[in-house]
């Protein structure tokens, strides 16, 4: 044990830099989606199998089930809205939010060979837990890995299925044009029965995805120890200094790069050299 400790001491400790990966809209979309999916699933289960209500009040006096449904519909609008905005952000957001980060294609629609290699790497070392002989820095994704984004793309289509069948079923209850846009969906599928079935199955796919998603976030947070979990709150991830271009500013002499004392009134860094 002692010899082991001495050996470690010879290697300098790794230094990391804070990289702003998840922009504010991405984080807002993420957490709005969390709330929406949570509310939608809970109210959805209640709508599917309502609890036995032993109430003495008259029906005209109560509106409980209808309220649950209204909450479901409001959350559905949030879910749909977030989906549209996130889709928009896939074209204007940073490289980690861009559609090229989600599909294994380059911007000119050629196959992104690095993305394929990345998926392969994730399967080998993260899923199958194979022994990694040589650690390559470039194997560690700064944003999402392509295995994760492939799952997100599938979930996007599952979400679309939920939106189309959900608003299709809802369209008859509404006089607004937006849900009416989807009134053809149950007709195309052959009726409300099929639409409801697809809605229910899609919800289960989302739930199954969530189990894997939360586990893998915890797994990577534990294994890589570079702020995977808190990244969706702060937006920052920690990236090894070697991967960040030298800026010419030597932070080693500064006590705290964050301190207001080191910045002028325009928020520009005061290089003391």
């Amino acid at each position: 044990m002692d010899t082991n400790k001495k050996e470690i001491t010879k290697i300098p400790t790794k230094s990391y830099k804070r990289v702003y990966v998840w922009q504010l809209p991405v984080r807002i979309f993420h957490w709005a989606n969390v709330v929406a999916i949570l509310v939608l699933s809970v109210t959805g289960f209640i709508i599917g199998d309502p609890p036995a209500l032993m109430s003495q009040s008259e029906a005209w006096n109560t509106f409980l089930f209808a309220k649950v449904k209204v909450i479901h519909f409001i959350a559905a609008y949030v879910f749909f809205g977030v989906m549209i905005l996130r889709f928009y952000w896939a074209f204007v957001g940073n490289e980690y939010a861009h559609w090229t980060a989600f599909l294994p294609f380059n911007r000119d629609f050629t196959i992104n060979k690095k993305a394929i290699g990345n998926i392969w790497h994730v399967i080998k070392y993260d899923v199958l837990l194979m022994k990694e002989k040589k650690h390559n820095l470039s194997d560690i994704s700064i944003g999402h890995n392509y295995m994760a984004t492939s799952a997100y793309v599938i979930m996007f289509f599952v979400g679309l299925a939920l939106v189309f069948t959900g608003f299709g079923l809802y369209s008859d209850l509404s006089s607004w044009w937006l849900p009416k846009l989807f009134s053809w969906v149950p007709d195309l599928l052959g009726g409300d029965f099929v639409a409801r079935q697809i809605h229910r199955i899609s919800m289960w796919l989302i739930i199954l995805f969530i189990i894997i998603h939360i586990y893998l976030v915890l797994f990577h947070g534990w294994l890589h120890a570079r702020g995977e979990v808190s990244a969706m709150i702060s937006g920052f991830k920690f990236v090894r200094t070697e991967r960040v271009k030298k800026t010419g500013i030597d932070f080693s002499k500064e006590s705290d790069e964050d301190s207001d004392l080191n910045y002028d009134e325009n928020n520009k860094f005061k290089n003391k050299e």
């Binding site: 309502p50 109430s55 009040s57 005209w60 109560t62 089930f65």
Partner: peptide, 8 residues
């Protein structure tokens, strides 16, 4: 009305 009230 019973449906909307949640009385089943």
């Amino acid at each position: 009305a019973y449906y909307d009230a949640g009385l089943f």
